[in-house]
């Protein structure tokens, strides 16, 4: 009986991750925002264990998307490596904080991030993301970044420059902190930092963020792995990782015809519900 329950647990975790990976890849957000509350609320998985499973899955998501974006030349590896200088150590700090703080504090932070993600998704549905960077008018960095990227859909060469690098690197520490502490990608912070602050086109910002997230999450995941007792539960982390990987791989193909607007609206509602449920946990409702 116990074995059957364990198997059912693994299958449900896999299915949750599969859906999260599929919808996350279409909506351009990491699956962690859905996986962690789903595991916590539906399967009763401890928040810290769910976070550890998610951060392992985030590495797979990053590698799956990152290798395509790096190869196509849309992701800016030079910018990514510099930003990782800030995100990786802050992810370690975030993960250490998560292993030490009360689960209610984590739930509170998670509720805020879910709420912010819902707001951002709603805002981008209404206004659309600024396709080009908005950091122009500031001096470009003196480091040797590439001067343009080739837009894959049109073949057009799009020029851009990276500006306000110190401010961008500094702000990226928040992305690392959020990623390490909550087991999510941190794109909610990283993408606006690159796009709005550093003047990087949105496509370069999202793809570079996908690449950097792998390095960031790996640094944070190691803390969860080495925690005594380890917070990485292989019976959970492995089905979740494989589920997200398969979901992200098939998501854009299977869900490509579904209206982006309808999907965004639906998942905004889901995020708001999860944020409220997490907030209720903070004030003592639920486990």
């Amino acid at each position: 009986m116990e074995r059957l329950l364990s198997l059912a647990h693994a299958v449900v975790s896999f299915l949750i991750a599969l859906l999260a990976g599929a919808f996350g890849s279409v909506l351009g957000i990491g699956g962690g925002l859905f996986i962690i509350p789903s595991l916590n609320l539906f399967l009763g998985v401890q928040l810290k264990t769910a976070i550890a499973a998610s951060i392992v899955a985030v590495i797979a998501t990053s590698l799956g998307g990152g290798h395509v974006y790096v190869r196509s030349g849309v992701a800016d590896i030079r910018l990514g490596l510099i930003l990782a200088l800030a995100t990786a150590p802050s992810a370690v700090v975030g993960a250490i904080l998560a292993t030490h703080v009360n689960a209610r504090v984590l739930a509170a932070v998670f509720a805020v991030v879910l709420g912010a993600s819902a707001y951002r998704m709603l805002a981008s549905t209404r206004a659309g993301e600024p396709s080009t960077g908005t950091g122009h008018g500031h001096a470009p960095s003196r480091l040797r970044f590439r001067p343009s990227y080739r837009e894959p859909s049109t073949g057009e060469i799009v020029p851009y420059s990276v500006s306000r690098l110190p401010l961008g690197v500094g702000s990226s520490t928040i992305a690392g902190l959020v990623s390490g502490m909550l087991g999510v990608g941190g794109g909610i912070v990283q993408v606006p930092v690159m796009n709005l602050l550093m003047g990087v086109p949105i496509k370069v910002a999202t793809t570079t963020s996908t690449y950097v997230i792998g390095i960031t999450a790996m640094a944070g995941a190691f803390v969860y792995y080495n925690h005594r007792p380890s917070l990485v539960d292989p019976a959970l982390a492995v089905p979740v990782t494989i589920g997200v990987f398969i979901g992200a791989s098939i998501g854009s193909r299977v869900l490509g015809r579904v209206s982006q607007r309808a999907l965004r609206n639906t998942f905004t509602v889901v995020l708001v519900i999860y944020a409220i449920q997490m907030a209720l946990r903070v004030v003592g409702f639920g486990q």
């Binding site: 590698l63 790996m218 995941a221 982390a237």
Partner: peptide
Amino acid sequence: VLDSGILVLFATPLVGV
């Protein structure tokens, strides 16, 4: 074997750097 799969996943971004 499961654990080593997780560790290979961890090592991959590092090898990328």
